[in-house]
Write a protein that binds this DNA or RNA. Sequence first.
DNA 1: TAGTGGTCTAGACCACCAA
DNA 2: TGGTGGTCTAGACCACTAC
Lengths: 251, 251
Amino acid sequence: MIPAPQVPQFSPLYRQIASLITQGLQAGEWKPGEAIPNEFDLAARYKVSQGTVRKAIDELAASNLLVRRQGKGTYVATHAEQTTQFRFLRLAPDPAPGATQPAPHEPLSRRFLDCRRQRAPAAVAHAIGLAGGEAALQVRRLLYFRGRPVVLDEIWLPAALFEGLTSTRLSAYQGPMYALFESEFGVRMVRAEEQIRAVAAEAGVAELLNVAPGAPLLSVERVAYTYGDRPVELRRGLYDTATHHYRNQLG
Amino acid sequence: MIPAPQVPQFSPLYRQIASLITQGLQAGEWKPGEAIPNEFDLAARYKVSQGTVRKAIDELAASNLLVRRQGKGTYVATHAEQTTQFRFLRLAPDPAPGATQPAPHEPLSRRFLDCRRQRAPAAVAHAIGLAGGEAALQVRRLLYFRGRPVVLDEIWLPAALFEGLTSTRLSAYQGPMYALFESEFGVRMVRAEEQIRAVAAEAGVAELLNVAPGAPLLSVERVAYTYGDRPVELRRGLYDTATHHYRNQLG
DNA sequence: TAGTGGTCTAGACCACCAA
DNA sequence: TGGTGGTCTAGACCACTAC
């Protein structure tokens, strides 16, 4: 007889508070960039001590939902910030030969190729939680560093969450796509999982990225999640790594 | 006039305690796998409250130097553990088509090709902190999943730290290389940085990995650090991603 | 100077593990 | 049952920011 899985029922107070705060974020009670109430006010509201609220906020700050600023307050994290800009795009320019300092981030520009309402292939629909037949949006875009194309992205989104998203609207917005998602559609990307492979460039792709057909490219497949671990984006990026690399920290 | 950089002098007590504990780890006072003293004993030793020790340990556990086990004690982390096994090797088998569960980790075997004492190229010497002319060890090995070669690693180490490391000794050891390093040479890898690119397989590499010449491979360049952020390994891995992928979490 | 987050303490009690 | 880490509280004080 297989023993029933021992599900630990116990959940400490601070985790319950963290969950309540997350619900407030999800419900839009506090918007990205805004400050949440101070620790004592939250403690009074939830009828716990300040230390417990503090530990709850610690957790949320550790998972990048909140940002603490000593002396000022605790703020809702946003993708519309310089410092958070490259949290999800891990591509960096190669260091110049002999350089001791890592190369700084280069100016980046975006070009949107198309944005179509379309039936998603089964694998895609499954990944972003679409029931049979629900519509999806497919966006394709190029990223340029120093005027050269380096990344080709193909992005799938549930159409229901992004009604009114068009190529022109994407092009008009200056700044990261995820910042537009959170300000215009109330969808905030919280975490993502990536699968990385090396592939050979197909003809059409090669032309867009200005590389030889068959050239090795990095394939980066990402599923991005919003609050409550709901998957809301599938993205396949093809990176030309001739002058750039994907950087990663192992802890 | 450029303002002098404002160096924050203030360091909270718990960080000083964390630093003292780290020194103990570095000095080998507590060995990988062993338990450190309980929180009250440490508090008495450092003349602070248990809460402060606790916060210090929290930090060290967060950076994977220590492992807490409720009801048992706090232990020095080790690479010789199943759970930590794949913390630095981020290669996972592709899920079977239509599978809902991610594929489990596959049995892995290692084959060492050679281990030579050798002058390191300048770039390598610089990366692992070798002064001019100091000797290095170069190790090459293959990793097999299900009997098939998937990874070719070329590894550079400072010879001074690994006196007596030979191909036969590497082959004799069952388990991760980093576990051997920590138990036999007292060098514990704490964190690493990786740069990932897509490259085309050269002839010799292609043969070893059993792929066509020119096939796209993942190039994973790693610098691994021990205590005190000292770089002690440079590793270049070539991964065949036909049936596997490099997985990454973005938080 | 007022308000916010950050640190430190002391003590009570709870959850988990092993013997 | 005893020992360990884990939680929660209450209060004092420190460091940083803005006005």
